[in-house]
Computed example of a mutant assay.
Amino acid sequence: MLVSEIDMITPSSLSECLTQLSKEGRKHRLIAGGTDAAVRMKEGKWRPDTWINIKNLKELRYIKESEDFIHIGPLTTHTDMIQSPLLQRKADVLVEAAREVGATQMQNMGTIGGNIATASPAGDTLPALYVLGAMLELTSLTNKRTIPIEEFITGPGRTVLKENEMITKILIKPQKPNGIGIFQKLGPRKAQSISIVNVAISLTMDNDRNCTEGKIAFGSVAPTIIRARKCESMLTLGLLNEELIQNIAKIAWKEVMPISDGRATATYRRDMASALLERGLYRLIRRWENQ
Rank of each mutant, 00 (worst) to 15 (best):
L2D: 15
V3M: 13
S4Q: 15
P11Y: 01
S12Y: 07
Q20F: 09
G25W: 00
I31M: 09
G34D: 05
D36G: 03
R40L: 15
K45C: 04
I52Q: 08
E59D: 11
R61K: 14
K64V: 09
E67C: 08
D68A: 15
G73V: 07
T76F: 06
D80N: 11
M81K: 07
S84A: 06
L86N: 03
L87Q: 04
L94F: 12
V95G: 00
A98K: 09
E100C: 13
E100M: 12
E100V: 04
A103C: 13
Q105H: 10
G114W: 06
A117P: 05
A119V: 02
S120L: 10
V131N: 09
V131E: 07
A134D: 02
L138F: 08
N143Q: 13
R145Y: 08
E150W: 00
E151Y: 09
P156E: 03
R158N: 10
T159Y: 01
K169D: 15
K176P: 11
P177L: 01
G179S: 07
F183E: 05
Q184G: 11
V197W: 08
A200S: 14
N210Y: 13
K215L: 03
T224E: 04
R229G: 00
M234A: 01
L237C: 11
L237Y: 13
L244T: 02
L244P: 00
I251S: 05
W253F: 15
E255S: 05
V256E: 01
S260N: 03
A264L: 10
R269V: 00
D271W: 14
Y282D: 08
L284P: 03
